[in-house]
Amino acid sequence: QTTIQVRVPYRVVGLVVGPKGATIKRIQQRTHTYIVTPGRDKEPVFAVTGMPENVDRAREEIEAHITL
């Protein structure tokens, strides 16, 4: 297991999390990772935990939302 920090712009935190957390839950299920969402007043950084290859996939999925 490994944990990485995925930093995103403030404006996309809501996009990545999705309505009621649906998007981030879907990313967690698809990539078999555990993702901690940043709090409102915190740095916009997601903490992604899982097997290294799964963590990389989750990071790619999160980063895909940044380019939307």
Score class of each variant (00 low, 15 high):
residue 1 Q to S: 12
residue 1 Q to I: 15
residue 1 Q to L: 13
residue 1 Q to N: 13
residue 2 T to P: 04
residue 2 T to H: 10
residue 3 T to V: 04
residue 3 T to K: 02
residue 4 I to E: 03
residue 4 I to A: 06
residue 5 Q to S: 12
residue 5 Q to H: 15
residue 5 Q to F: 14
residue 5 Q to A: 10
residue 5 Q to G: 06
residue 6 V to Q: 08
residue 6 V to A: 06
residue 6 V to M: 10
residue 8 V to R: 00
residue 8 V to T: 02
residue 8 V to Q: 03
residue 9 P to M: 04
residue 9 P to E: 05
residue 10 Y to W: 15
residue 11 R to K: 15
residue 12 V to Y: 14
residue 12 V to Q: 13
residue 12 V to L: 15
residue 13 V to P: 09
residue 14 G to L: 05
residue 14 G to V: 02
residue 14 G to M: 10
residue 14 G to A: 12
residue 14 G to Q: 10
residue 15 L to M: 13
residue 15 L to F: 12
residue 19 P to V: 08
residue 19 P to T: 10
residue 20 K to M: 11
residue 20 K to C: 09
residue 20 K to N: 11
residue 22 A to G: 02
residue 22 A to R: 14
residue 22 A to M: 06
residue 23 T to A: 04
residue 23 T to H: 02
residue 24 I to G: 05
residue 24 I to W: 00
residue 24 I to Y: 03
residue 25 K to L: 08
residue 25 K to W: 07
residue 26 R to W: 13
residue 27 I to E: 02
residue 27 I to G: 02
residue 28 Q to W: 01
residue 28 Q to N: 00
residue 29 Q to E: 15
residue 29 Q to P: 04
residue 29 Q to D: 05
residue 30 R to V: 10
residue 30 R to H: 11
residue 30 R to Q: 14
residue 31 T to Y: 03
residue 31 T to M: 10
residue 32 H to R: 12
residue 33 T to R: 07
residue 34 Y to G: 03
residue 34 Y to E: 14
residue 34 Y to R: 15
residue 35 I to W: 00
residue 35 I to A: 05
residue 36 V to I: 10
residue 37 T to Y: 07
residue 38 P to K: 04
residue 38 P to Y: 01
residue 38 P to L: 07
residue 38 P to I: 05
residue 38 P to M: 10
residue 39 G to R: 13
residue 41 D to S: 07
residue 42 K to Q: 15
residue 42 K to P: 00
residue 43 E to T: 06
residue 43 E to M: 04
residue 44 P to E: 14
residue 45 V to H: 04
residue 45 V to Q: 02
residue 46 F to L: 08
residue 48 V to I: 14
residue 49 T to F: 05
residue 50 G to W: 05
residue 50 G to H: 05
residue 50 G to K: 12
residue 51 M to H: 13
residue 51 M to W: 03
residue 51 M to K: 13
residue 53 E to T: 08
residue 53 E to D: 13
residue 54 N to F: 10
residue 54 N to S: 10
residue 54 N to T: 02
residue 55 V to A: 05
residue 55 V to M: 00
residue 56 D to E: 15
residue 56 D to M: 15
residue 57 R to T: 01
residue 57 R to K: 13
residue 57 R to C: 07
residue 57 R to I: 01
residue 57 R to W: 06
residue 58 A to R: 03
residue 60 E to N: 11
residue 60 E to H: 10
residue 61 E to Y: 09
residue 62 I to L: 07
residue 62 I to P: 02
residue 64 A to F: 08
residue 64 A to N: 14
residue 65 H to W: 11
residue 66 I to H: 01
residue 66 I to A: 14
residue 66 I to S: 11
residue 67 T to V: 11
residue 67 T to L: 11
residue 67 T to D: 13
residue 68 L to W: 14
